[in-house]
Design a binder for these strands. Structure first.
Lengths: 359, 359
DNA sequence: GTATGCCCTGCCAGCGCTGTCAAAAAAGCA
DNA sequence: TGCTTTTTTGACAGCGCTGGCAGGGCATAC
C-alpha cells in the first residue's frame, strides 16, 4: 500500500478494513515509534518532538485510531466518566441538567452516566456506594433533593469521589456548589408586581422540605417590607410545588365573599397553572382581575393562556458549570480563582409575559 | 480480627477500612481460593462446589467487594454499558425513554450512557463511529429521528454494535424494533369521535418528515371511510408538531364565516394546545362548541383547561423493551420466540378527558 | 486393577493502555 | 572538543479482571 503522507511512515503495514478497531499498537507500528510515544501524543503530553508528533498523528488518522476508554481508565488514574445522581420528577429540569453537563463533558471527551435514584429507598446509601465501587467515576453531580441528603453526601465522600452540588440548601461549604440567587429572583419579581401598582399580593409557598421554598419566600417578604407593605398572613398559602396544590391554593384564594389580592406570586409555575385553571373556571380574568406569576419557566408556561410571567433558571448553564468544576480540577488554579470555583452563582432572568398586568 | 463466618475463611487477612475498594485478589485470599474461582462465583458460572461458592460469597460480603466494571470490560467480551442516541427536543419523551432503559439495565447491572446527537450535524456519522470505537458498548438504542437516518444505521452497523430502534419509519426488518401501533391509535380515537356524534372532523397533520405523521393520518382516514364519512380536504391542515403550527391551524379553522368542523383531531398535543389557545381567545368554547383531541399525552395536557383527550404512548415500556432485547441477547431463544423479539408492538391507551364532548 | 470421563480448581496469558524509570539523543556550556 | 544538562524515547510492569486450558480428584466402567 502506498502511503503518501509527508513523513516517513513505516511501509508494509496493513491499513484497517472499514469497521475494524485499531489499537495503539497498530499506530505505533505504522508510525515506527513505541506505544508509549503514541500514548504521549494522544494525551497531549509535552516532551515529544514536533516531527514525531506529526508522524504519530498521521498514523492515527490513517488508522482511524480512537483510544480505548476502558483500557485508559484501567491503566490510568481517570475514568473519563462523570455521573449525575438525581431524583426529580421534572423531566424538563433533568433534561436541561443533562444537556448542560454533557455539553461540558464533550469539551474534554468525557462521558456522562445518568443515575436516577430513589431518594426514599432505604438502600440509597448502599446503592450509591456500590455504584461508586463498581465504576470509578471522576466526579459526581448531585441535584436536589439528593444534594441535601446526609446519606448521599456520606456515600460519595466515603468513596472519595469529587462532587459538586446544584442548588443545595444545607451544608454550604461542604462541597463546591452551583446555584442561582433564588431570593433575589423573587425579590425582583415582587418589585415588578409592586411597580405595576400591586400592593395586595398573595403568595403560595413551595414544598416545605425543599430548600428553594424558604429562599423564595425570603425575597418576597423583603421586597414587600422595603415597599412598606405588610403581608397578610391569610394570603400566604402552603403549597407543595404540584399542580394540585396550586388548585387548592386557588380555591382558597377565590372562595366567595372573601377579599382577594390583586396579584398572586406562586413559588413555581405548576402551582401557578393550577391557580390559573381555578380562576378561569370561576370567570376571574387574568390579568384584568388578578395578576399571577410563577417561577421556573416550565415548558407549560407558554402553552397556557395567558402566558405566564415567571423566572427562568439557567439550569443548563448551572449544570455546565457543575461539570466544569469537576473537569477543571486538574487544571491550575489562578491566583484568586480558587474561591470562585467553590460557589458559583449564575444569573436568573425575569420573563414578563401576559399573566401579570397593572392594577 | 475474629471472623465468625460459618465457613473457614483464611484468618489474618485485614478487613477493609471504610471507603477502601477491595479487589478480586483480596477476596480470593480471604476465601482461600484462586482469583479465577472468585470470578466464577461473581459471574454465577457453573462448576463451583456449593461449599466453595458460599465461602467466596461470605468473603466478598465481608470485604464489600464489587467487581470493577472497567476491568471486567477490558478483559471480557462485555462492557456492561449500553448507549442511547437521540436528537429529540421533547424532554418528557427523552426522560421516559431513559427511565425505561435504565429500569431494564439495573436488572442486569448494566449502566446507561446517554448520547444526544445533532441530527443535522455533518459530523454525525463520524461522531457516532468515534464514540463506538472509544467505548465498546454492548448495545445501542436509537430513537426517532436518528433511527431513520441512513448514516446513523451505517455507523452503528459498521461498528458491529447490536442496536434496537424505537418507532422507526424506514427500513423495517433491518434491526429489532419496538413501537406502538400509531395507526390503530388514531383509528380508535377517530371512532371515539364518531361515537360521540361527530361527522365533521378536521385533522392537523404532523411534520411531513416524521414517520408517525403518515401512520396517524392513515388511521384517521380509515375510521372515517369505514363510517361512510368523506373527509373534506380543506379540513386537513398541515402542521409541524409545534405549538406555533397549532396556532396557525387553529386560525385557519376558525376564520370568520367559514363553516367549521365539530371536532378537530390534532396529530400531537402541542398543536392541540395551540388550537385550543386560539379557540379560547375567539370565545369558542371547548368542548361545547368544538371538540379537540391530541396525541402523546404531553405533560401539558392536564395543565391546560379543559384537559386534553389524547393517546398515551407507553414510552417508558417501549424503552424498557428495547433495552430488554439488547440485554437478553445472550439468553437462549425459546422455540418460537425469536420472531417476537425482532418487532415488539406495545399497546397504547386512549385517555378520555374534557376536551372532547358530544355534538 | 486400570481406563474413561466428569467435575472442580488454579495457572497463565493478556485485554489496551498508562506510570515509572532508565537509556538514548539532543542541546547547552566551558 | 568533551562534558553536563535537558529533552526525547522506549522497556517494562502492571491496572483488575476473564478466557483458555491443564491438572487433580473422584466416580463410574471395563
Amino acid at each position: 500500500m502506498d502511503i503518501k503522507a509527508s513523513s516517513e511512515l513505516k511501509p508494509g503495514v496493513n491499513l484497517p478494513a472499514s469497521g475494524t478497531v485499531s489499537t495503539i499498537n497498530d499506530v505505533a507500528r505504522l508510525a515506527g515509534v513505541s506505544i508509549k510515544t503514541v500514548s504521549r501524543v494522544m494525551n497531549n503530553e509535552p516532551n515529544v518532538r514536533a516531527e514525531t508528533r506529526v508522524k504519530v498523528q498521521e498514523a492515527a488518522n490513517l488508522l482511524h485510531y480512537r483510544p480505548n476508554l476502558l483500557a485508559r481508565s484501567l491503566a490510568g488514574a481517570r475514568s473519563f466518566l462523570i455521573g449525575i445522581f438525581y431524583d426529580n420528577p421534572n423531566p424538563s429540569y433533568i433534561n436541561a441538567v443533562q444537556n448542560g453537563a454533557i455539553r461540558r463533558c464533550r469539551e474534554s471527551s468525557y462521558h456522562l452516566l445518568i443515575e436516577p435514584q430513589d431518594a426514599h429507598s432505604p438502600d440509597l446509601e448502599r446503592n450509591i456506594a456500590g455504584l461508586l465501587a463498581t465504576i470509578r467515576l471522576d466526579g459526581v453531580i448531585l441535584t436536589p433533593p439528593l444534594c441535601d441528603m446526609a446519606v448521599v453526601l456520606h456515600a460519595v465522600e466515603a468513596a472519595g469521589v469529587p462532587y459538586v452540588r446544584i442548588s443545595p440548601f444545607l451544608n454550604p461549604g461542604r462541597s463546591p456548589i452551583v446555584r442561582m440567587d433564588e431570593a433575589r429572583a423573587t425579590y425582583e419579581m415582587t418589585q415588578h408586581l409592586i411597580a405595576m401598582g400591586h400592593r395586595d399580593i398573595g403568595f403560595v409557598l413551595g414544598h416545605p422540605e425543599h430548600g428553594g421554598t424558604h429562599l423564595r419566600y425570603q425575597g418576597f417578604t423583603k421586597a414587600l417590607s422595603e415597599a412598606g407593605i405588610t403581608p397578610r398572613p391569610d394570603w400566604v398559602k402552603q403549597g407543595f410545588f404540584s399542580y394540585e396544590s396550586g388548585i387548592e391554593a386557588g380555591k382558597s384564594f377565590f372562595a366567595d365573599g372573601k377579599p382577594r389580592p390583586t396579584a398572586i406570586f406562586s413559588s413555581n409555575d405548576y402551582m401557578a397553572f393550577g391557580i390559573m385553571g381555578v380562576a378561569q373556571q370561576m370567570g376571574i380574568r387574568i390579568p384584568e382581575d388578578i395578576s399571577i406569576c410563577g417561577f421556573d419557566d416550565a415548558p407549560g408556561s407558554i402553552l397556557i393562556w395567558p402566558h405566564v410571567t415567571t423566572i427562568r433558571q439557567p439550569v443548563e448553564d448551572i449544570a455546565y458549570a457543575a461539570a466544569d468544576i469537576l473537569l477543571a480540577k486538574a487544571e491550575v488554579e489562578d491566583e484568586d480563582g480558587t474561591k470562585r470555583d467553590t460557589d458559583r452563582m449564575l444569573p436568573f432572568e425575569l420573563i414578563k409575559r401576559n399573566s401579570v398586568g397593572p392594577v
